[in-house]
Design a protein around this nucleic acid. Sequence first.
DNA 1: TGATTAAAGATTGTATACAATATAGAATTG
DNA 2: CAATTCTATATTGTATACAATCTTTAATCA
Lengths: 236, 236
Amino acid sequence: MGARASHYQNLTDLPEGKARDIYIELQKAIISHNLLPGVKLSEDEVGDLFGASRTIVRTALQALSHSQLVTIEKNRGAFIAQPSIKEAQEVFEARELIEPRVAGMAAKIITPKDIDILHNHIEAEHAAIAAGDKGEALSLSGFFHVIIADIAEHDVFSKIVRSLISRSSLIIALYWKRLDTTCESHSHHALLDAFSENDAQAAEKIMKSHIVDLHSGLDLKNHTQTKQSLASILNR
Amino acid sequence: MGARASHYQNLTDLPEGKARDIYIELQKAIISHNLLPGVKLSEDEVGDLFGASRTIVRTALQALSHSQLVTIEKNRGAFIAQPSIKEAQEVFEARELIEPRVAGMAAKIITPKDIDILHNHIEAEHAAIAAGDKGEALSLSGFFHVIIADIAEHDVFSKIVRSLISRSSLIIALYWKRLDTTCESHSHHALLDAFSENDAQAAEKIMKSHIVDLHSGLDLKNHTQTKQSLASILNR
DNA sequence: TGATTAAAGATTGTATACAATATAGAATTG
DNA sequence: CAATTCTATATTGTATACAATCTTTAATCA
């Protein structure tokens, strides 16, 4: 729980304050699919909700826009981003290149304490699945990757990975086609084994195939895009 | 010239307007080493300079901060970023992983028109070197990489590459140790050859060794950091 | 009736005033 | 004289008022 919270907090370089709080809260809601792609974020509405002035809200929304989680349209306002099919492809291609490398780096310097954290994280994931909390499970499985990036102690890759994973949540909201959510547990366990043995090559390989597998779970045919996102908006 | 300008413009997703103009101008100045790491960007000063209110200036500065070109310290203001030695290492490690892949992608789909653009770009680079305009030459050699990323038509990688290259300008300002600036021309020419033959593997290989070479041109020993940056600040 | 236009309302864009904080310099004290 | 505290100044942080733009609704006309 504590670990998870800290991972949310480090997702922005906004200085401490209300703007940062709003950023973190909105991001949490986006990642856990409580806010769906296309939903409008009115400045007044968000401001009322958090007891903040529009100045502060705008700072938060602009930051979210720089993270590609929100799209700001001139004179129209901020909306939860709706990644296109092409963007979805690209995000996963980037993950397939970067994350295996990061996993390999992590495997080389991981500590028993880190392994414990990852282990507990997987437990929490299982618990969320058991409790039927799909959004929480999804959020946790994403943060598993963020934790690995942190273990690798490479801030540049870490920031990139964080960004790609946040965006993956939006992509999954729009394009996920599988009904079974438990598919990931196996890979995460396998990764943990490789980490335990400091086997960088194995970690790299497992991470690569894991992301390829996630990628293949998306329905990125040409037609779905507008339909899916429109449906999501109506859900508002 | 026109090509270069457009590349500057696409470096931010800020909506059109004064804030975007300020962002682009400041970025240009940073990349060409007219603004050095550590220099303070006072809101009033920037506002007066561009005839804009602080509201607008803050939007631009916050965007620059998200691009890691500027550091905002609470209640103290915005400063041109001073990447640490560790960050410098990481930025080039990331470039070594990502840019070769991007170059390979570009090689597969590059058109004669693109090759012309790259060729003209190299010419301009030579001209700048001949004219002794070091800042311009550096800026152009960076944009060479951005153009390649654009040719690859992969927006996600492209954004990442743009960010890494902007930051490289700051890193070079702080840590570059070579006296000869012409070292790069050879690699860029070799890349052009590989592109002409749509040889993705060769392009990938050349790009990798090119970036390794750039990386090796940095003096990333422990001591230089504070000294260098302090000297830079005094230059203000 | 359907489409087009016009007006009203709501929302974002921007400037500015005031508050909070940091900085620089003067005064004070040992 | 050095160090410290206090004061004045400058700078950033935030709220808010007003302008510009979009959206919705009502009215008008063919």
